[in-house]
């Protein structure tokens, strides 16, 4: 039973993290909490890709002398893609925080219902 399930455990954990992020973005009214939830969602996507790269019994994708077997190293492609995704995530978070600062300067609040209320006035 456990043998059967453990092959999918990483995907389920990534899905749970993604759902936490989705819940935060859909259900919380505070914009900073939405941003934090977006970061959690992004981490879920990164973990999912890293889980796809995994091979049983394989080592890190750095060549060890005398070990030329393809199945001895994990797949380097998702690692390379996620490396850039992390840095891009940091800069999108920076832009989002800058936008939040502007919103706070303009409306004086970061609660979404109050912002919508003030936009109607």
């Amino acid at each position: 039973m456990w043998e059967n399930l453990s092959g999918y455990l990483n995907y389920w954990l990534a899905a749970v993290l993604l759902l936490i992020g989705l819940y935060g973005m859909l259900g919380r009214p505070n914009l900073v909490k939405k941003l934090m939830a977006m970061n959690i969602l992004q981490v879920a996507a990164i973990l999912f890709f890293i889980a796809l790269a995994e091979k049983t019994g394989a080592t890190a994708p750095i060549e060890v002398k005398g070990l030329h077997d393809v199945s001895a190293y994990v797949n380097p492609l998702p690692h390379a893609l996620m490396l850039t995704a992390i840095v891009v995530g940091v800069s999108t978070t920076g832009v989002a925080l800058a936008l939040l600062i502007r919103i706070h300067r303009h409306f004086g609040t970061l609660e979404e219902p109050e912002i919508l209320e003030r936009m109607r006035l």
Binding site: S6, G7, Y8, L9, N10, Y11, W12, A15, A51, L52, A53, E54, K55, T56, G57, A58, S71, N75, L77, P78
Partner: peptide
């Protein structure tokens, strides 16, 4: 959708 994915650690997974 998770049940349709290759198992974690599968050497023959399409991505690898």
């Amino acid at each position: 959708a998770a049940s349709d994915l290759p198992r974690v650690g599968d050497i023959e997974s399409p991505a690898s």
